[in-house]
Design a protein around this nucleic acid. Structure first.
Length: 826
RNA sequence: GCGAGCGUGGCGGAAUUGGUAGACGCGCAGGACUUAGGAUCCUGUGCCGAAAGGCGUGUGGGUUCGAGUCCCACCGUUCGCACCA
């Protein structure tokens, strides 16, 4: 980096340390939660306190939020701006494993380091209301949240697949699987079924989707949630399985009469019920429970082998590999539309967790089915004809997925696809072969982690009473400090190795029982933390009713779009559940959400391997926090991020130096310059509009522009010209502006000053600069009265030689845009 | 593959409803003050051209008196999601 040889202008380190101290002494950043008027809850996503310390990305986000919050305070709101630490989870645990330290040792020192760095950044954070998710006083209530869901029947246990490393004998998160191999030992990862706790978030799909319409959120974030929830309309259709022993191969069998009532049925979900006449086979997911019943003896061993292979494959590669594999079960089902027998296959391109885990394959009109049918030589029938196609148009190596009319579909031939969807579904419904349904992609939230570094799930298993929730009075279930927190070859959860911990009496019958040894997902810690901040200190409740009513929902939430889906969706879900329990009077936690951009450097993402990581400490040492903050906001639109360059920061420092000098040298004698005052009012207006729109870069540019006007030709500013600028700069550069505010004779914090108001009458002028175009090309400009008419403007343009010379002959047309422009068409 | 966004000087980036393209900053050039300047201040700075003038917002079309902005096609790039039936 290019550090300055010596700081010029004002000395940031002296000013900044002085004000940090005064803020602490005076409690400038404390929020009067009980009595504050006009509450404004400005929330930023809390960080994971890594050992590397604060990242510029964190600081960029926090500064952006802080500016917004400070602006709201200057507007007269009582602002609450809390910050805490999201310190549980696999990141901390993996790092602890790597450096061979215990997370219980590591996290407090990481937090202390973060706090030191955050303090230097000049954030208006009320540290008295902080949270640390690893503090038992916090996770007591995380466990309480779990119990509320359990009470509502929204927490349940079921077996689900996890990535399993047979060599490390441990569960791996998806990000620990690299190309199907364990990132630690390189062994091929398998999947394994474990009993895990789930939250029924899928029940809330329609509400989570519908409420999005009412939220003031970044459109990209809303769209990401919509995609994730994945609503699709279609139908569930039932296919009767024929008894393979009696009917296999006899394609002429009439399906309607000869079937017994107890015959198995395959239910599929499809968004294209219209193509039922083209369904030439069925496919079940390898995990489908019906496979055992329907597979014929001759196919049994092949099917078993395929299922074994599918289960060996790890979850990541299975989902990304596009190659079609499968196996025939030997069984057939009847197509309810055609009555024909179609074979039932199994293949891993069908996912058990979506829809019904089974599909009807329409190879003519679905690319995946087409690939599969081609690979296994299954029949492909056209049932939709597009423009210029007929029932007999051959497929040119690909499925036809476009629009068109039905063909080869008996009485539905000629019907447009959209209409056929409806009509054919109704027809199938009347035949009791299906019904129209809305399906959601969103599946239940697995909150179990077979790990150490998280809050223990507050459940006890008793041989007599079964699953017993830990009574709320016994919370927290404290995570024990065990030295062997590593997942090792002994089995599943590290806590499961500690009998002295998991052996407890049953809370209901007192007999010997056993604790749940899994911990909960980090996303649960962060799904409710915003409820806790205002109620920190209350040991008796998770959140105080009156305080919550006053301060929530969160007024504005600012954070990274990497959490657009999971964190934000989980927070919404938990809030809805608590709302339904009448514990909250709102069901959406974040009224307004804005996603900030990403800071890159020299066009590339910052990463240790590229060696382009910016250490905020260095820059704050060299330039001061005020310059650093302002520079971060100046380098691009906040919502898009920007390119960090060492060279750019000097311009911002110069701006603050010039502000300093202007205040120091300002005079109260004489009168302010009217032109400067006009510019001042225009600047007040512009900055006051830009900040709430998060257009920080243009707000700073406007203030710089004003500074140029103010000091043009080395003039000394009048006090009235420069004083209003101080609170305007304050959100960006809080330390220096406190100092300047004091220099101007004020005894209270600049944050308790009012945002300057602008006088709209100052902005209007009697004359305007009229741009004159001839034939659409700009040829000059004229200073004219605002009320000029078209004829007058034309005459004036013609009279001006530098413009008039382009007006040759009679104009075809003259256009006046009042107050702006005159275009003469020749 | 699907979805969303973005392509503007040497660089980061500005541009109401279509109405002076390049604000602001960096860099660069010239000057002032200086023993000195990598500090500070002032002036200039899209490209070509001596000038007049011409050309310019990824490419090619279109609408319009007028397009960075609107429409169509394409190219490049970034970020999500990814066999979701």
């Amino acid at each position: 980096m290019t550090a300055p040889i010596e700081p010029i202008g004002y000395d940031p380190s002296a000013v900044e340390s002085r004000w940090r101290q005064r803020w602490a002494e005076r409690g400038t950043h404390r929020t009067d939660l009980a009595r504050g008027k006009d509450p404004f809850y400005a929330l930023m996503m809390f960080p994971y306190p890594s050992a590397e310390g604060l990242h510029v990305g964190n600081l960029f986000a926090f500064t952006g939020c802080d500016i917004y919050a400070r602006f709201q305070r200057l507007q007269g709101h009582t602002v609450f701006e809390p910050l805490g630490y999201d310190a549980f989870g696999i990141h901390s645990e993996n790092f602890a494993l790597k450096v061979g330290k215990h997370p219980m040792q590591l996290i407090p020192s990481n937090i202390a380091n973060f706090r030191r760095q955050l303090d230097r950044a000049g954030l208006m954070v009320d540290w008295a209301q902080s949270v640390d998710t690893t503090d038992p006083a916090y996770y007591k209530w995380t466990q309480w949240v779990f119990l509320q869901l359990y009470k509502q029947g929204l927490a349940y246990k079921k077996a689900a697949a996890v990535n399993w490393c047979p060599s490390c004998k441990t569960v791996l998160a998806n990000e620990q699987v690299e190309g199907g191999h364990c990132e630690r030992c390189g062994t091929l990862v398998e999947q394994r079924f474990l009993e895990q706790w789930f939250f029924k978030i899928s029940e809330y799909s329609p509400r989570l989707l519908k409420n999005l319409e009412t939220l003031d959120w970044s459109e990209t974030t809303k769209q990401a949630q919509r995609n994730w929830i994945g609503r699709s309309e279609g139908a569930r259709l039932r296919f009767r399985v024929l008894d393979p022993l009696t009917d296999a191969g006899s394609a002429a069998v009439s399906v309607t009469t000869e079937l017994k009532m107890d015959t198995a049925e395959v239910e599929v979900f499809t968004t294209r019920p219209d193509t039922i006449f083209g369904a030439t086979y069925l496919v079940l997911a390898p995990e489908h429970p019906l496979i055992d019943t329907i597979t014929t003896p001759t196919q049994q061993s092949a099917v078993d082998a395929y299922r074994a292979r599918a289960s060996k494959q790890d979850l990541v590669t299975r989902k990304t590999s596009k190659e079609k594999t499968g196996e025939f079960t030997g069984a057939y089902a009847a197509n309810p539309a055609t009555g024909e027998l179609i074979p039932i296959w199994i293949a891993d391109y069908v996912l058990m967790e979506y829809g019904t885990g089974a599909i009807m394959a329409v190879p003519g009109h679905d690319e995946r089915d087409f690939e599969f049918a081609t690979a296994f030589d299954l029949p492909i029938v056209r049932v939709v004809a597009g423009e210029g196609q007929t029932a007999r148009t051959p497929f040119d190596g690909a499925a036809y997925v476009g629009d068109g009319v039905m063909v080869n579909s008996e009485e539905f031939d000629g019907m447009p696809v959209a209409e056929a969807k409806k009509v054919i579904t109704e027809w199938l419904e009347s035949k009791r072969a299906g019904k129209s349904v809305t399906n959601y992609r969103l599946h239940d939230w697995c909150i179990s982690r077979q790990r150490y570094w998280g809050p223990p799930i507050p459940i006890i298993y008793c041989d007599s009473c079964g699953t017993v929730p830990v009574p709320e009075s016994q919370l927290p279930v404290v995570l024990p400090n065990i030295p062997d927190f590593k997942p090792d070859d002994s089995g599943i959860s590290p806590l499961a190795r500690h009998e002295e911990w998991y052996r407890v009496p049953c809370p209901s019958c007192g007999k010997k029982a056993r604790r749940e040894t899994d911990v909960s997902d980090t996303f649960l810690d962060s799904a409710w933390y915003f409820l806790r901040y205002p109620s920190v200190g209350r040991d008796d409740v998770a959140f105080d009713a009156a305080t919550t009513k006053k301060w929530l929902p969160v007024t504005t939430y600012i954070g990274g779009n990497e959490h657009a889906v999971l964190h934000l969706l989980y927070s919404r879900f938990i809030t809805m559940v608590l709302h339904d329990m009448k514990l909250l009077d709102f069901e959406e936690p974040f009224t307004k959400f804005r996603a900030h951009g990403l800071i890159i450097r020299e066009g590339a993402k910052m990463s240790k391997s590229k060696g382009n990581v910016v250490n905020p400490d260095e820059y704050i040492d060299a330039w001061g926090a005020d310059s650093f903050r302002t520079y971060l906001m100046f380098l691009g639109p906040f919502e898009e991020g920007g390119d960090f360059r060492d060279s750019g920061i000097s311009g911002v420092k110069r701006f603050l130096d010039r502000l300093w000098a202007s205040v120091r040298d300002c005079t109260s004698e004489g009168t302010p310059d009217p032109e400067v005052m006009r510019k001042l009012h225009a600047t007040i207006k512009k900055v006051g509009e830009d900040i709430p729109a998060l257009s920080y870069n243009t707000a700073i540019a406007a203030m710089m522009e004003y500074m140029n006007t103010l000091r043009k030709g080395e003039r000394a500013a009048h006090r009235a010209e420069v004083e209003p600028l101080v609170p305007m700069v304050a959100p960006f550069a809080p330390h220096i502006t406190e100092e300047l505010w004091e220099m101007l004779g004020h005894t209270t914090s600049v944050m308790d000053a009012a945002w300057p108001t602008f006088d709209a009458s100052m902005l209007v002028s009697d004359t305007i600069e009229l741009v004159v175009q001839v034939g659409g090309k700009t040829r000059g400009k004229l200073v004219v009265p605002k009320t000029i008419t078209q004829d007058e403007a034309f005459a004036a343009a013609k009279a001006e030689p530098s413009i008039g010379k382009f007006i040759t002959g009679e104009p075809k047309k003259v256009i006046l845009v009042p107050g702006r422009l005159l275009n003469v068409v020749v």
